[in-house]
Simulated scan of single mutants.
Amino acid sequence: MTGTPQDRAKGAILGAFVGEALGVGPHWHYDLKELRRCHGNWIDDYTTPEPGRFHDGLKAGQNAQAGFILELMLRSLIERKGYDEANFCKRLDNDLFPLLDGSPRSGPGHYTSESIRHAWHRRMVQKQPWHNIGGAADTTEAMERTLAIAVRYAAEPALMSQAISNNTALTQSSETMLSMGVGYGCILARLVQGDALDARISQQPLTWITTGALSFEPVTTCREAPDHPELPLRAKRHIVRDALHAASDIAAMAGDPGVHIEPAWKISHLYGMPCAFYHLLPAVYYLAARFSDDFESAVLHALNGGGQNQSRAMLTGALVGAQVGLGGIPQRFLNGLERADELQQLADTLTSQMPG
């Protein structure tokens, strides 16, 4: 673990943008022979999508829609000096939804995920209020934007957990998704604070649960959740404890000399290549723990595993970026990332607002 919390926070933010952009070209190849035919035996840099593929029209180094929404979140957090749900929702209403038409292949990045399409339909067609928008998608879109919340509130677990829960619930109403999002946020927050991604990574978050520091009630108790006056508490009952134990167990496996997964990209075959969180998160935790000091290896193995490799690389990039800091991200990835200077300035501003 290197640098200050601010440097690790910048690494997490830029690592997410890098991972997401790396997935633009080879996204959603479930036939690995076809993936290799299109992009070679080992993808090691940004690529341009082939005609007719997802994100067709983007160029190598550009971000797709997850990156677009993450940037909206960053700008909202910066402008409001913290999570302001009304401001973030206004940005979706004004800056994202007018660019969509409800179909998958529309909008920034030329592809719109299921949860965002559902939110667009409920909001723009049915004219529903934001508190009645969330759908049942079991994918990781919310984690891909709330990772910025985890970074911003890395030292403030009550605000972090409540903001992640509330923001996730805007588009995904499942309590399981809220739990997984808070769990991922807790792990990322501890990495920003300097913990190692090993078998002990969940110790502090589990202590937060025991002491009531997280803004929700565990399902194993009858204790009421501690509301925070700055945020509305939309969802009170989560199973974050299991999400945290899973991260520790997988991190321990990554460091176990008796476990051999070679090459490492085959972790996506072990846990599954599809889009649901229960396929993606175990692979993300494994790669981020195994390559804790090697950003390039982590994101490239996430990428070369095929399937939903864009989300896998984005979430892995955030976790490893938080471990190596901004300086640990290879310069060639930053040089090749479109608008990298502007994105880094956003990360600089966000981290300047973090409590000392």
Results as ranks from 00 to 15, higher is better:
198 D>G: 04
186 C>N: 09
132 N>H: 10
166 N>V: 10
194 G>V: 05
200 R>K: 15
143 M>Y: 07
139 T>V: 12
138 D>T: 09
139 T>G: 11
201 I>P: 05
192 V>R: 02
200 R>W: 08
160 M>Y: 02
162 Q>N: 15
152 R>W: 09
206 L>W: 10
195 D>E: 15
183 G>S: 13
168 T>K: 02
165 S>R: 10
145 R>D: 07
200 R>S: 15
194 G>W: 01
180 M>L: 15
172 Q>C: 05
146 T>W: 03
165 S>Y: 00
204 Q>T: 15
131 H>A: 13
183 G>Y: 01
166 N>F: 04
172 Q>P: 09
173 S>E: 11
184 Y>P: 00
131 H>P: 06
137 A>M: 07
135 G>I: 02
172 Q>N: 07
138 D>A: 13
157 P>W: 03
138 D>L: 14
195 D>A: 15
157 P>E: 12
133 I>Q: 07
185 G>N: 08
181 G>N: 14
168 T>S: 06
155 A>D: 08
181 G>F: 02
154 A>V: 03
181 G>W: 00
175 E>K: 13
172 Q>A: 09
169 A>S: 09
163 A>R: 01
194 G>E: 03
156 E>W: 01
206 L>Q: 14
129 P>K: 02
189 A>S: 13
188 L>E: 04
158 A>D: 05
189 A>P: 06
182 V>I: 07
153 Y>I: 14
159 L>V: 09
206 L>D: 11
154 A>H: 12
186 C>K: 03
154 A>L: 09
184 Y>K: 08
171 T>W: 08
166 N>T: 15
188 L>I: 04
170 L>M: 13
188 L>H: 02
134 G>H: 08
195 D>Y: 12
161 S>Y: 04
169 A>C: 12
166 N>S: 14
146 T>C: 10
193 Q>R: 11
181 G>K: 00
158 A>P: 06
169 A>Q: 12
131 H>I: 12
144 E>Q: 14
154 A>T: 07
134 G>I: 00
199 A>G: 15
142 A>S: 15
151 V>F: 12
166 N>I: 00
130 W>L: 11
140 T>R: 03
186 C>Q: 06
177 M>H: 08
149 I>L: 10
197 L>F: 07
180 M>H: 09
190 R>N: 07
206 L>K: 10
202 S>C: 14
150 A>Q: 04
181 G>T: 12
187 I>G: 04
194 G>A: 09
183 G>K: 07
170 L>G: 01
194 G>Y: 06
204 Q>C: 11
149 I>S: 01
159 L>G: 04
186 C>M: 10
136 A>H: 09
201 I>D: 03
135 G>D: 11
204 Q>Y: 03
191 L>N: 11
171 T>N: 08
146 T>F: 09
136 A>P: 08
180 M>S: 14
205 P>K: 03
129 P>E: 06
132 N>I: 04
133 I>F: 05
148 A>C: 11
132 N>T: 12
149 I>Q: 00
203 Q>A: 15
192 V>T: 10
